[in-house]
Design a protein around this nucleic acid. Structure first.
Lengths: 258, 258
DNA sequence: AACGCAGTTCCGCAATACCGAACAGGCGAA
DNA sequence: TTCGCCTGTTCGGTATTGCGGAACTGCGTT
């Protein structure tokens, strides 16, 4: 484990989470490293374009090179490239926005976003991260993970984003069991009030859940009446299954075990 | 300059540019570093989520952490957040897609993309990079840079992307002079056949050109007839000026010098 | 069955990154 | 204006740390 690289990434993370425009001194005490050390790291990162220095205040903030690398990641993500057409189809079939996501640590990372066909301005959510237990995408993925990883996630932090977030491991475990039974997961305003979602897991040739696809929208559209909800669930599950086949998953993978 | 951080970034860059899914050995000889060293770097980056290892082949590819950092960069980019409403307005006024970009090294980096109001599927170009001299955005920014940076860019590599790309420094210098005169730059299929663009620079309180905003679309829409072209140019320049004011640029900045 | 090549591990050397202390520049208070 | 305090920055000695040669292991091929 290379120490200086580890510290450099911590610097980037700190700039990303704590407000941007941090000074050398502030960064140094946040990370617990001597000031000159942080300075050297910053200079290196700056020469690579991953960090830039505000000429007026002398403070540091994230650099454009990160966006290029982030975009390069998206291109390597086979799930994303393969999901584009399926996501579009699902969006027009359901009339709702469609998200495709993968699991990164204990958060869900949105890698593709097909806009709702109709409707006003929508902001692009690619790159957004959400705690796994507060969204349908996350529950869909985790439900089909090996049980040791599942247990680890259930024991981790389970923050509450809204009054409806579920933070009790026992309740979540039960929900996951249910997801394994029906093949899709549901979120009812657990990450943002007014928003709901339905999602199903996507598998690749290894048989592991590599991500999930699902619809996201106003709770009135997605979950209001039972018939609409069922129609959405069927559409989502079907698309997820097709996408999985395209990624090389055999018929015998987890979603057919249910 | 911290050596191991520099090398770690080189690893990431190599994975981003050369095809993804590179092996340790291949990376080692590309970068000119011993195999065990690269291995240690990769393990560190993997533990940070910036790199992941394909379990089947053992080869390495970019990780999801990069997307999170790239997105965090976008949030720090004041130009982007401020430009959103202006870009939407410009898109509906002109009926074309609108891009907002900054200069990163000798490339232009798209930080915001407002879709064309009408029209079929469009792919999101945020994160895309284009050589500065092959697009209107790039010429608009460079034209108002300090003359030493301008000279450096003109002396650098000027690759040709299409048969219409301009790679002669003298011709480009003349174009930049013209841009300074009229306050906007034009691209005629210099980065992709069939695509054209018109862009104006955006300034901040320091008076430096921090980016550019402009329309991009089929050459038939953007440059076909003189009247439409002029209308677009006026709209672009006006929006760029308003955006600059919002970023704190005084009346006395470069775009009014022309 | 033997080969070659991949990713991985080990260990000693010394190059390298770390940090304490001192420097320079900008801002606010007095 | 002057002082003092706070930045970001530079320097150089120390020993921690990362480096790479050589050896190991497991897979796919010949």
């Amino acid at each position: 484990m290379v120490q200086s690289v580890h510290r450099a990434v911590r610097v980037l993370r700190e700039l990303a989470t704590a407000g941007p425009r941090l000074g050398v001194t502030e960064l140094a005490e946040r990370i617990g490293v001597a000031k000159p050390t942080v300075h050297a790291l910053l200079r290196t990162l700056e020469s690579e374009g991953l960090v830039r220095q505000d000429r007026e205040t002398g403070k540091y903030l994230l650099g454009p090179g990160l966006l290029q690398l982030g975009n390069a990641y998206l291109d390597t993500q086979e799930l994303r490239t393969r999901s584009v057409t399926w996501a579009d189809a699902l969006a027009s079939r359901t009339g709702e926005a469609v998200w495709v996501a993968v699991l990164a640590e204990d958060h869900v990372l949105v890698v593709h976003h097909a806009f709702r066909p109709e409707g006003a301005v929508q902001i692009l959510e690619v790159g957004a991260t959400i705690p796994w237990h507060t969204c349908a995408l996350g529950k869909a993925i985790v439900a089909f993970l090996p049980s040791d990883r599942q247990a680890a996630l259930l024991e981790g932090e389970l923050p509450r984003l809204t009054g409806r977030s579920v933070s009790d491991p026992a309740v979540l475990a039960e929900q996951l069991e249910q997801v394994r039974g029906i093949g899709y997961a549901v979120e009812d305003q657990e990450s943002a009030l007014g928003d709901a979602g339905i999602a199903s897991p996507v598998f690749d040739r290894s048989g592991e859940a590599v991500g999930a696809i699902g619809v996201v929208g106003p709770v009135e559209h997605v979950l209001a009446e039972e018939t609409a909800r069922r129609k959405h669930a069927v559409a989502v599950r079907e698309v997820a299954r097709n996408l999985s086949r395209e990624l090389g998953a055999g018929r015998g993978t987890a979603w057919s075990e249910a």
